[in-house]
Write a protein that binds this DNA or RNA. Structure first.
Ligand SMILES: NC(=O)c1ccc[n+]([C@@H]2O[C@H](COP(=O)([O-])OP(=O)(O)OC[C@H]3O[C@@H](n4cnc5c(N)ncnc54)[C@H](O)[C@@H]3O)[C@@H](O)[C@H]2O)c1
Ligand SMILES: NC(=O)c1ccc[n+]([C@@H]2O[C@H](COP(=O)([O-])OP(=O)(O)OC[C@H]3O[C@@H](n4cnc5c(N)ncnc54)[C@H](O)[C@@H]3O)[C@@H](O)[C@H]2O)c1
Lengths: 214, 214
DNA sequence: ATATTTTTGTTATTTATTTCACAATCACTA
DNA sequence: TAGTGATTGTGAAATAAATAACAAAAATAT
């Protein structure tokens, strides 16, 4: 069942498809065509049909897609039918916001514990999540944890990631503005708000120039 | 000077290059080769040379790149030599974290004001930024504002964006897990943490399966 | 029951991006 | 200042992704 040949670009769209389908099922919509779905998610309908086709025939010709069936399929494909446990490292401004955000709603992921270097935070509970000292991280057994969310200052992201890896964590969602150097058995995704903001400003200015020069 | 034919993928890497160069200049490194730079940012050196080549000859053969010169060039290209004013809409958990985060450090962008629908927040100041009522947004003159950061609940993101657009804002950094439908004169970038987390889980599981099947 | 319409799944085509390969050029050494 | 080594800039090739086009199939209407 493992689909080795699903393009990366397709895989990255699946969560959006899944969430959109959750919304459709919730409002009682039972069927949808690729073009109507495409309008919703702002992706060309051909791209959507192609994406689904990597997983076999999920729709019915002349009818479209059954939202419930498609949602169920994507839930399995995205491993959302089992709970994924994650930890959060760095309970500062951003980390606290993430702890307060209930990822578990429509999203089978739970922040089960947090780590911070600040001794005054050790043992406290933020939004139901207990905070542990960093000293214990590297020697803890976290092999049941899917991923670590890194919200520490950039200067400490690398060491924090290495400790987490030592404890058995292989996935990382890095919010620090720095590149991590980890061995090949680790997988990192980077959410970089500064980059996003600068890219936004770049594209805004350039599309304006383009418009003016026409 | 407007470079119409810079690929999108290249443009999206420029902020990372710029930030990395800031770090290099700060520690006194005056020159760097594309391969050393590539190791730092984890991008193939050929890609880096190609990226820079869209802007002309920025390096010197047999020498590499002058970090200060390259940084200055990118600062101009990314419009980082002028201050970009942005507003933030939705001062909740995430919005507050962003207000507390000093974007202006190494990043010529300032959140100049915020908006929220909660009357108890109106007139208060969070981390130096004054909060205004949503009623006033659509009629305010925000034509000097580059972009709006949207950190409102998903159900209100569309209406908030429309009000901001009415006030003269054309750029949006959307943190809500929802697609925005805006006219062509608006430009939206989407930061979607739920999608990132699910994509991470998907790739982790799939790369594990791949490894096991070998 | 038949005709018409809808809509998928897929092959072919186009476009975008990355990587390769290497001549041209400059830096540095002796 | 000649010779060697380093490193860029760039066409060509390879890979990846998006879009177009359409036959096949099923739904719906008549
Ligand atoms: N706050 C934001 O909105 C925002 C936006 C974009 C990026 N970021 C990035 O996210 C990261 C966190 O930002 P923040 O605003 O929450 O910072 P913060 O200073 O508020 O919080 C950082 C937390 O990490 C802890 N910490 C420091 N060193 C540590 C270590 N070695 N191990 C474990 N914990 C450690 C601190 O005690 C603190 O609680 C930074 O890298 C920042 O650049 C934040
Ligand atoms: N908190 C997180 O870490 C996190 C993570 C991922 C995504 N998000 C997304 O970011 C958004 C905000 O999340 P949050 O946790 O800060 O939520 P929150 O409930 O803490 O804050 C939302 C804020 O928006 C304000 N608001 C509500 N309706 C509004 C309207 N129509 N106009 C203006 N302001 C309005 C509320 O008064 C509140 O202050 C949500 O869409 C959420 O899904 C948050």
């Amino acid at each position: 069942m493992a689909n080795q040949n699903v393009p990366q670009a397709t895989a990255e769209r699946l969560p959006l498809y899944y969430r959109t389908l959750q919304g459709l099922v919730a409002v009682g919509k039972t069927r949808i065509s690729s073009s109507e779905f495409g309008d919703l998610v702002q992706i060309d309908s051909t791209t959507i049909r192609k994406d689904f086709s990597y997983f076999g025939a999920l729709g019915r010709k002349g009818y479209g897609y059954d939202t419930q069936h498609l949602m169920d399929f994507l839930r399995k494909t995205l491993y959302q039918d089992e709970l994924s446990k994650v930890v959060l490292i760095g309970v500062g401004h951003l980390g606290t916001a993430l702890l307060n955000h209930n990822f578990q709603k429509n999203n089978n992921t739970k922040i089960v514990k947090a780590y911070d270097i600040d001794p005054s935070l050790t043992g406290t509970v933020v939004s139901g999540t207990k905070i542990y000292a960093m000293d214990t991280l590297a020697t803890d057994d976290n092999s049941d944890i899917t991923a670590a969310i890194l919200t520490v200052p950039a200067a400490h992201a690398q060491e924090a990631a290495e400790m987490a890896l030592a404890s058995g964590i292989h996935g990382f969602l890095n919010f620090s503005p720095t590149t991590l150097s980890l061995p090949a058995n680790a997988y990192v995704r980077h959410v970089d708000m500064t980059v996003e903001l600068q890219a936004l400003i770049y594209f805004l200015n350039h599309s304006m120039e383009e418009r003016n020069s026409k």
